[in-house]
């Protein structure tokens, strides 16, 4: 009797807690879902319609937009360019931020100052700092070419060449995002137990061996995080392209995400933008899954 009574009381307490929890959580979750889950659903449908968003109703056109996407080389080229340009940005950022983290992982009174300085480019929005690059890169009277001329070198016509525009896009991208990535790496480096290195030293392991057997395994989780979030980020990168090269020279640095933005927000061609978003989203998720699979497989082998 006593036992049963007690159980009942526990149950009601649990129920009460659950009711309370839902009362707090549900309104917030519903509100958040309206603004983020709903667009996800709309987005999946949008690709099958012809719609200009501001007047008239969406018209169901079936697979027409997807046929346009895969039918001509234009969109496919943009998708491929999004992948390799994004890939280059990501690789450059990961490698350089790791080196920077190693450089910052030194005890010195100036370390705090250096850490702050490398982070500062990130606290200004991309739009705010891109003007400097445009002013410097003007092929005729930009700061950089004038400097080259004063050294007696030939000026480089940056905007003629895909190589240089991609290069500057990467420089701008890395300049903005190397700080945060380096700080994440640094957090990882510092969380590795220092006694492991001591022990290795006692065992007579060389610096290279220490890095190979202690540092790299210790950073596996961090590197997975940086790679995965970075991957998702660069697959949607276009503000940098819009601000630095505008897709020039002659569309050679244009990426799919920029096209989606122009289709949707400038030309109001929502159907095509929706279809392209769906494809790009799926490709991103697919790549992220493959990357995740490879990383976790590597984990098991160790």
């Amino acid at each position: 009797m006593v036992m049963a009574g007690r159980q009942e009381r526990v149950l009601t307490r649990k129920q009460r807690q659950s009711r309370r929890a839902y009362a707090v959580i549900l309104p917030f979750f519903l509100y958040i879902a309206i603004w983020s889950l709903l667009p996800l659903v709309i987005g999946l449908l949008l690709g099958f319609t012809d719609f200009n968003a501001l007047n008239g109703l969406p018209k169901w056109v079936g697979l027409k937009n997807f046929k346009t996407f895969f039918g001509s080389r234009d969109y496919i080229d943009l998708l491929i360019r999004q992948m390799w340009m994004g890939g280059l940005c990501l690789v450059a950022n990961v490698v350089l931020s790791f080196l920077l983290a190693l450089a910052l992982n030194v005890k010195h009174p100036l370390r705090g100052f250096f850490r702050t300085s490398v982070y500062i480019p990130n606290i200004a929005a991309a739009a705010i700092t891109s003007g400097v690059f445009i002013a410097l890169l003007n092929p005729f009277n930009g700061g950089l070419n004038m400097f080259f001329k004063s050294l007696g070198m030939d000026p480089i016509i940056w905007n003629y060449s895909q190589f240089w525009m991609v290069f500057w896009i990467i420089v701008f991208f890395v300049w903005r995002s190397v700080g945060p990535a380096a700080i994440i790496w640094l957090g990882g480096l510092q969380s590795i137990d220092a006694s492991l290195y001591e022990a290795a030293k006692v065992d007579g392991a060389s610096k290279v061996q220490q890095v190979k057997y202690i540092t790299i395994p210790g950073l596996r989780f961090i590197s997975a995080y940086i790679l995965l979030t970075g991957l998702i980020g660069v697959m949607q990168m276009f503000d940098v392209v819009m601000l630095i090269s505008h897709g020039n020279p002659y569309g050679k640095t244009d990426v799919l995400m920029y096209r989606i933005y122009r289709d949707g927000v400038i030309s109001f061609n929502m159907g095509m933008a929706g279809a392209a978003s769906t494809v790009l989203g799926l490709v991103t998720v697919l790549i992220a899954f493959v990357a995740f699979f490879i990383i976790s497989k590597g984990d098991n082998n160790e």
Partner: peptide, 29 residues
């Protein structure tokens, strides 16, 4: 402790990996 807590947790974690390209244009619409 409440029923469905795990579901909320999964929602939270999944939401962080959804590429924003999927929602940019639909949000505009």
């Amino acid at each position: 402790e409440f029923k469905g807590k795990k579901l909320f947790l999964i929602f939270i974690i999944c939401s962080q990996v959804v590429p924003s390209v999927l929602t940019m244009i639909p949000s505009f619409v």
